[in-house]
């Protein structure tokens, strides 16, 4: 569905991607993680044609997104961090914008509005940031586009809304859809995003399912700071150390997203060796 080959992109003073390769398939809710400035938002913009690759190729649903063809835009919904809503009521917004999306489901939209407790008679510009975000999420989910791109979707949402968002997304997503969520709020996305993509220094340095991560890495809590060579990552926490090693025992270990991210960022080469070794083992 999304096929990026050798893509390069940068801003005037900063090269962001150089030879980026990425393949994403439908039926998944991908989590896009990375440090500040890693290019997560820019990658979302490149995917929906708001930025143009300077070299290489980016294809989405078979289209070149930089041409912004209507046929592609009908199948993409991007909810960015900078929210923009016109001064109309949710009902009027639906009348104005739903016809642009051929598979828009009015029933699902009404359901999400109820679930998010949004007042249908109040103008969108009068809503709080969180309410606007919930409204756009409801619209995005109801649009039934094959590609749903969410940039920091839980920023600005209160605690119940984060839970509602997770439930709504998990319930509404179909096997034909691809959801790509860029986020720093990994705890909000626990049990939702899988596989995980980690961007750093212009490259995808990690793209694996959580199941594979649990199979390849073991996470333990230890009282003393470990010093053995098998440690990939360790971090002091309340009551001891979180320690990540290669999983040689075979039993699956629960890897939380924050630990996984920190491990990959701290020791990408060793993580790569562990996963590449696993892939080679599978091949053999």
């Amino acid at each position: 569905m999304i096929e990026i080959k050798g893509m390069a992109f940068g801003y005037k003073r900063q090269k962001l991607f150089d030879g980026l390769d990425l393949m994403l398939e439908p039926g998944n809710i991908y989590g896009l993680l990375g440090k500040n400035g890693a290019g997560k938002t820019t990658l979302l913009k490149l995917i929906c044609g708001l930025r143009f690759p300077q070299a290489g190729e980016c294809r989405v649903l078979g289209y070149l997104p930089q041409n912004r063809p209507a046929g592609l835009l009908e199948d993409i919904c991007l909810i960015s961090e900078d929210l923009h809503v016109p001064p109309v009521t949710p009902v009027f917004f639906e009348q104005l914008y739903a016809p642009f999306y051929p598979r828009f489901d009015h029933g699902v939209f009404a359901e999400h509005l109820r679930e998010f407790e949004l007042d249908g008679s109040k103008k969108l510009t009068e809503l709080s940031y969180g309410q606007k975000k919930k409204f756009l999420l409801a619209f995005g989910l109801a649009s039934r586009t094959r590609l749903l791109l969410l940039d920091e979707p839980t920023n600005g949402l209160d605690i119940p809304s984060k839970s509602q968002f997770r439930k709504a997304l998990a319930r509404s997503t179909t096997g034909e859809q691809l959801v790509l969520i860029s986020t720093h709020q990994v705890r909000d996305m626990e049990n939702l995003i899988d596989p995980i993509i980690i961007l750093d220094e212009g490259k995808v340095i990690f793209q694996e399912s959580l199941e594979e991560a649990s199979r390849r890495l073991s996470v333990t809590m230890e009282r003393e700071q470990p010093t053995d060579a098998g440690v990939i990552y360790s971090d002091k926490t309340l009551g001891g150390y979180v320690v990540v090693r290669e999983n040689t025992a075979g039993a699956e270990s629960l890897v939380d997203l924050e630990t996984l991210f920190n491990t990959v960022i701290a020791n990408r080469d060793k993580v790569r060796t562990v996963f590449d070794g696993a892939a080679a083992g599978k091949g053999a």
Binding site: K45, C48, G49, L50, R68, P69, A70, L73, E74, I76, C77, L78, S80, D82, L83, H84, Y97, F100, Y101
Partner: peptide
């Protein structure tokens, strides 16, 4: 406008 460009340019219609 802030956010307006993303909203308008991704609106499903051709240039």
């Amino acid at each position: 406008q802030n956010g307006g460009g993303v909203f308008y340019l991704t609106l499903p219609a051709s240039s």
